[in-house]
Design a protein around this nucleic acid. Sequence first.
DNA 1: ATTATATATAAGCATTCAATTATATATTTA
DNA 2: TAAATATATAATTGAATGCTTATATATAAT
Lengths: 107, 107
Amino acid sequence: MEQINEIADKLKLLGDKTRLTILALLTDREWCVCEFVDLFDMSQPAVSQHLRKLKSQGLVSESRRGQWVYYSLNIDDKPYIRAVLNEIPSSQEVLSSMNKEINCDCD
Amino acid sequence: MEQINEIADKLKLLGDKTRLTILALLTDREWCVCEFVDLFDMSQPAVSQHLRKLKSQGLVSESRRGQWVYYSLNIDDKPYIRAVLNEIPSSQEVLSSMNKEINCDCD
DNA sequence: ATTATATATAAGCATTCAATTATATATTTA
DNA sequence: TAAATATATAATTGAATGCTTATATATAAT
């Protein structure tokens, strides 16, 4: 039962469209916070809080490089997450359906 | 984006330990409501409402036989759900870890 | 040093959610 | 028909969630 609880807790994070989109995008490459801020119609703190939740449950890792913080997927030990991400629209599809410009200067 | 939203809405249902357990159990066979009521430490209406949510999102089907109502999995058109259920503990594991007696008279 | 940029945290608020109790409905049995 | 059993729905409540604005922190540039 403990195992089901833990899995449910992690899956809860995928049950939000913003976080699911973030994870979909991270399947392709690491992303900088400012890119997400450009992408979503949402304040910078809102984005930051979603990333914090993903990080606190260990689904993403962060690494700071200069003034920018980059997030990447960290789900090698969570096959049930990988299984979902394999079945949802690709990073490219998600991105093109959003039709947004990303203007921050990271990299 | 519409597709991601829909997937997120359905995954939200898996982010609750009771509903995830219900789905795990239904991978094996159909279950009667009264069995779930016996299994979970929760009122009958609470169980009923979880089942209603799963049904309203099309993840389970119900069929009444006499006074009993049986639920079964309905996820053939949702590969991202199937993918999760394939990666979580089996029905048997879940059940034995719960260590509960099921005493209702359905079949 | 000061200012600008990127990110995180805190506090507050409206909404959603998961439970409860009470009640209604459907079916079976006596 | 009346009582018992199984299930669903309604109303309520407290906790959790996702956002906002305001503020703090970290790094870079002038």
